[in-house]
């Protein structure tokens, strides 16, 4: 059925890492109310307490950046970026604004073309003219800061559009999946609401459902909670945690360090278009190697 359910069956477990985290009892930041509003699966809470917080990932490279450079006019926005993301891996990208982190993930589905270097996604090179870009994009879900739901369509129509038009599913099948996904993101009763009738958090959850409806192999999140009121952030993060748990390959641009600690396999810190530092969350937060990383973390973690 849904790709990531199947995916999760094939996850290689990495018990060492999991147990480490359980031992540390890593949680959301205490100031974020955890109770998910209207979320049917109360299992989420259980999982925080006893379950493993992370799936392992496979040793299959999903995304490769090779010496990628990009310019906007005279501005050098990506500098010699080398990056590998494996199937099932959750990578959090952080950094000051203008550091190129959004550009980095927008290159993965070629919303931004690159200047130099090569990006290979799921075995296909983006610079190869024979690569079917439309087909590749169908495999990559993307969630934006501003939700970007189609305002003239209901939540259900937003979710079923691409499965019907691109995957050629029947309308009934697409709606069945869409309702399932709406239930999964905790708002089954909002199927017939238009985006403008939903709160920001609800809109973002519909946007996540819309991306998932294509059964993507990769999910990209471009600051998914930055436009949300504080009390709506957790309802969106909950859905993302759940997704990470199921073994989805995710690249998340975010400043939610609680989320990063909890689900990321790797955290990447970018500044001025460069990957300055990367590492597992424990070492990244406990003893960052670079001075630039330290000063950034001091600024965002102080409050």
């Amino acid at each position: 059925m849904l790709g990531y359910f199947v995916n999760s069956l094939f996850q290689a477990q990495q018990p060492a890492e999991c147990s480490l985290l359980v031992a540390e009892q890593v949680r959301f930041p205490p100031d974020v109310p955890f109770a998910p509003k209207g979320f049917p699966g109360a299992g989420l809470l259980d999982f925080v307490v006893d379950g493993p917080t992370k799936q392992g990932y496979q040793d299959i490279v999903m995304i490769t950046f090779r010496q990628v450079n990009k310019w906007f006019g005279a501005t050098h926005v990506l500098r010699d970026v080398d990056l590998k993301v494996r199937a099932g891996e959750v990578v959090v990208v952080c950094g000051p604004s203008g550091s190129g982190k959004s550009t980095l993930i927008r290159c993965i589905n070629k919303l931004e073309p690159i200047g130099q270097g090569e990006i290979i996604v799921d075995g296909r090179s983006l610079s190869n003219p024979t690569t079917d870009l439309t087909a590749l994009r169908a495999e990559i879900g993307m969630v934006f800061q501003q939700f970007n739901l189609y305002p003239h369509m209901t939540a259900l129509q937003n979710i079923t559009l691409a499965p019907v038009k691109v995957r050629k599913l029947s309308r009934e099948e697409a709606e069945r999946i869409a309702r399932k996904l709406l239930a999964k993101v905790g708002i089954p009763e909002k199927a017939d609401h238009y985006p403008a009738q939903l709160s920001g958090g609800q809109q973002q959850r519909v946007a996540i459902a819309r991306a998932l409806a294509m059964q993507p192999k990769i999910m990209l999140f471009d600051e998914p909670t930055s436009a949300l009121d504080p009390e709506m952030i957790s309802e969106v993060l909950d859905v993302m945690v759940e997704l990470a748990k199921e073994g989805m390959t995710m690249i998340v641009v975010t400043h939610e360090m609680g989320f990063a600690k909890k689900v990321a396999h790797r955290i990447i810190f970018m500044d001025e278009g460069r990957i300055v530092e990367e590492g597992g969350p424990e070492e990244f937060f406990a003893n960052p190697k670079e001075e630039r990383t330290r000063s950034f973390l001091n600024k965002i973690l102080v409050h």
Binding site: L111, R137, E139, Y150, H152, A207
Partner: peptide
Amino acid sequence: KTLFEASVATGLSVGQAYRLILIPI
């Protein structure tokens, strides 16, 4: 413009994005 990006990001072709999203709005 971001609505156009969102629609092509789900795998719609440029023509479909115009026909189903941009022009109706």
